[in-house]
Amino acid sequence: MKVIDGHCDVLLKMYLDPAIDFYDVHTSPMDVTYSRMLHSNVKLQCFAIYLPERITQPHFDHYLEYINIFYQKIVRSGLIQAVKTRGDLELVMNGRVPGALLTLEGADALYGNPLYTRTLYHLGVRMIGVTWNYANWAADGVLEPRQGGFTRKGKSFIKDCNDLGILLDVSHLSEAAFWDLAAASAKPFVATHSNVKRLCGHPRNLDDEQIRALIRVDGRIGVTFVPWFVESSGKASVDDVVRHMEYICALGGERQLVLGSDFDGIDRHIPGLEHTGQYDRLAEALYKKFTKEQIEGFFYKNWHTFLSQHLPIH
Rank of each mutant, 00 (worst) to 15 (best):
F189T: 05
N136I: 13
R152Y: 14
F70G: 13
K288S: 05
E144V: 03
P18S: 10
F22P: 03
R204Y: 04
D267R: 11
M93Q: 02
L115Y: 15
V238N: 04
P18T: 09
R96I: 05
F178T: 00
I221Y: 07
H244I: 15
D31I: 00
F189M: 05
Q294F: 08
Y63N: 04
H62S: 10
T224I: 05
K159N: 09
F299E: 09
H202A: 02
S185E: 06
F298D: 04
H172S: 07
E284P: 06
L164C: 01
K2W: 04
G95L: 10
C46I: 01
L167I: 08
Y66E: 12
S237C: 11
T27I: 11
K301C: 09
A100Y: 01
I158F: 01
H244A: 14
D17M: 00
G6N: 08
K13C: 09
T151E: 13
K13F: 08
G297Y: 05
T151I: 13
F178Q: 00
D239P: 07
C8V: 08
K2M: 08
I67Q: 09
D108V: 04
T119K: 15
Y287R: 11
V25T: 07
I49G: 08
D24W: 08
E284M: 12
A138T: 11
H193D: 10
F70A: 12
L273T: 02
I295R: 08
Q256T: 15
H122I: 10
M1K: 02
R36M: 00
K153N: 06
I215D: 13
G95A: 11
L44I: 02
R126M: 08
V75P: 10
D264Y: 04
I49F: 11
D88Y: 13
A135C: 08
N205F: 05
L311V: 07
K235Q: 15
A109Q: 00
Y247F: 15
A283M: 08
R281G: 04
K155N: 09
F290C: 04
I49C: 09
R198L: 15
A191Q: 13
F225T: 11
I166Y: 03
G277M: 10
V217S: 03
M93A: 05
I270H: 03
L120G: 11
H7D: 00
F263K: 05
L115D: 14
D218H: 15
N205P: 06
I221G: 10
D262E: 11
H122R: 14
G265D: 12
F178P: 01
F299W: 08
L64A: 11
D169P: 01
E274P: 03
I215Y: 12
C46V: 09
Q57A: 13
N68E: 15
Y66W: 12
G234H: 05
T117F: 02
L206I: 13
K235M: 13
C8I: 06
Q72S: 15
A107S: 06
Y247Q: 14
M93S: 03
D160K: 05
K43S: 15
D21V: 09
L12K: 12
L282D: 03
A184S: 14
A19K: 10
